[in-house]
Write a protein that binds this DNA or RNA. Sequence first.
DNA 1: TAATGATTCTATGAATCTATAGAATAGCGG
DNA 2: CCGCTATTCTATAGATTCATAGAATCATTA
Lengths: 202, 202
Amino acid sequence: MQNPESPKYQQQKLAAIRAAAAVFARKGFHGASTTDIASEMGIKQGSLYYYFKSKEEALAEVCLYGIREYVQRMEEIATSEQPFEARLLATVTSHLSSYREKNEALKVHNDERLYLPEIKRIKLKQLGSHYRELLEGIFEDGVRDGALREGLDCHFAAQSVIGICNAWGELIVRDNELDVFEVIQKVNDLLLNGFVPPKATA
Amino acid sequence: MQNPESPKYQQQKLAAIRAAAAVFARKGFHGASTTDIASEMGIKQGSLYYYFKSKEEALAEVCLYGIREYVQRMEEIATSEQPFEARLLATVTSHLSSYREKNEALKVHNDERLYLPEIKRIKLKQLGSHYRELLEGIFEDGVRDGALREGLDCHFAAQSVIGICNAWGELIVRDNELDVFEVIQKVNDLLLNGFVPPKATA
DNA sequence: TAATGATTCTATGAATCTATAGAATAGCGG
DNA sequence: CCGCTATTCTATAGATTCATAGAATCATTA
């Protein structure tokens, strides 16, 4: 076994997670074979089990890899001292940037995590809920500050923003000609200015 | 064979499409077996091939079933004489209502169509693009009328609205405790009023 | 160089899955 | 009731898949 958690092992394990992410993103969990994943990282099918106990464990690790950092970053944003508006923009930027950096893993988390057994889904669900609640808190602050209109359904708003970001993120992953920064800018613009013209302000 | 396209055949074929939709929605295309689909409609695995030439053809029919009506309805909305605002609201209502009525098929169309061979995907892609273009047209009218702010990126806006509706639609399908009409109302509210307060108007 | 442990390979068992073929049943018209 | 067709069933071939076991190779260190 890999007792010393040697650097080589760590490195190859990361390569394995990335390979699995790429293949799962392309073919889906059930459509991807262990042969596919192995050949993506240049080894043979049987060798893959040196890094994953099972195909399902590979999926679990990819999902966790996909969402972990992204929640951490959200934690930092939410607890920062910046005003509402800046935190909202930072959220969108972080969310969409995550899609660019580790795009396949995040896509896999969104689309394939439901195929994990319930026990393994719980941790991911907690992370996801945590993320949403942090964003909800930002909106609540916005309402308190008067930056957002009274009575806004913050739960709904947070869920919607996540929905927009994921929708665009999926498009970014699928069609990698999209300019991520342009998308970020336009989503931010949409959230702050809406569709209707700012009738009475500058 | 089913030469006269007998009513019973039609009826069972529809049942087959619905069963396939339900199973594909739950397990994904590759995760669903023909045994699953057959037993969902109360017949045996082999009998399924009386209705579908192949599993892949079943997917194609489910996807088409999922999106067809929904585009037709959009066509009617887009070409109606109503003002911009009413057409936008009607679009959201139609989109989300579709999710309630034939929710599994629409979910399958969104999530699994990429597993179809390219030839079969083309027709679906055309339908989807057509839908987006119609919505884009509505936004363009809105800009022309002054209901929307000058310089709004209508392509981006349309794509974003579709993204929001799909995100909520997926939630509706997954968690069927959600009140569809409440979601419709809130999405409409979001689109018209945005997050920020309507500073100078009523 | 020899030895030890890490990493990869080959080979394979057992299960599952799609699709086909032909037999069986059901239902309808005469 | 008979015959015909539509519909469903059973059985199976052939391919693919996941996971395991044990052999082989590579790298490092003594």
